[in-house]
Design a protein around this nucleic acid. Structure first.
Lengths: 172, 172
DNA sequence: ACCTACATGTAACCCGTTACATGATTTG
DNA sequence: CAAATCATGTAACGGGTTACATGTAGGT
């Protein structure tokens, strides 16, 4: 699943500008997909060319005009088709785990700082997921993904809480 | 942390050929980093140019000759330096979660198949991690990463086991 | 007869990122 | 007065992938 297709998915909830799609990526999709402006804007232009979305300029007072995109029927079909042909793979890359793998080569300060950094990121994402979840109005599928994310982040935090002391005070 | 640097890390355990480094990626590093031959071979050539590794051809009977790389002191320093300047970020991308997010647009067969595919992958990685773990001989840092991986995979499997029924028999 | 493991590499391509350019308005 | 938010886009670059090319040895 690539950025153009993800944009179609984001537009299923209703029309949106590129900027707003980015926000959806940063909240709802954040824990399992990501995309930058430089991937989203060209993607939307391409989708419009291909007739999968239509665009309309909306002028605003006190704010820059925005280009609001709406999914066409062809776009909707294309996305559902893409879902059915997609695999269920995942890619995970973690410099946090890598650093821990080589923990014995690091000095105490560095280890403390990577734990802190990583725990903060986990807590931040967790809070966001929980607040979205609390907001309600999700389909069963969406709730599944939120709960999955919450469960995983909590498991990671619990694991770290249980084991980090081993690396912070090697000899007491 | 990019492929060349990861190769340096893989060589900390002793000299190895490109092929053997790939194997280390597929076992020890598998659950948090990945790299293909087409990334590893050019990386090693580059590292040799830069004096971070040395290479030696080892001819074998009944097998193709291999180029065995060994870390130089400069390479070792470079890697440790890279560890200290690296952040602790992670990237996670999951088409499995994405598909579940849009579960209501999928037919029952597709949902069943993505659960099966994903559970198989999780179980496979879990088994591998557990067998490496059982093999012993790991540093505390390495054990941390193995246990972290095992914990996470188990948490994912448990979550799926608990919730998948909701999507497989929508109305009974 | 075919597939897998061992072993190294290249070419073509895809997909994405960071940084830049521009500019109004609100908030600290 | 500086910074963040809203808003769209491009240019340059990086980093990786799949597929191909080549060849031996051993197992089913």
């Amino acid at each position: 699943m690539n950025t153009p297709e993800l944009c179609l998915g984001a537009l299923l909830w209703g029309e949106a500008s590129g900027y707003e799609i980015k926000q959806r990526f940063e909240t709802t999709f954040r824990h399992f997909q990501q995309a930058s402006f430089a991937a989203i804007y060209p993607a939307l232009a391409r989708l419009e060319q291909d007739g999968l979305v239509t665009a309309r300029i909306e002028t605003q007072e006190k704010r820059p005009a925005k280009k609001v995109y709406r999914l066409t029927e062809a776009g909707r079909r294309h996305f559902i088709d893409a879902l059915h042909t997609s695999g269920a793979g995942e890619t995970f890359r973690s410099d946090f785990i890598l650093l821990m793998f080589f923990a014995e080569l690091l000095d105490g300060d560095k280890i403390a700082s990577i734990f802190e950094q990583h725990e903060n990121e986990l807590r931040q994402t967790l809070e966001m997921l929980e607040s979205i979840r609390a907001g309600g109005g999700q389909s069963p599928g969406q709730r599944f993904t939120l709960d999955y994310g919450i469960t995983m982040k909590k498991a990671a935090l619990a694991f770290i809480a249980q084991h980090k002391a081993d690396f912070l005070e090697p000899r007491r």
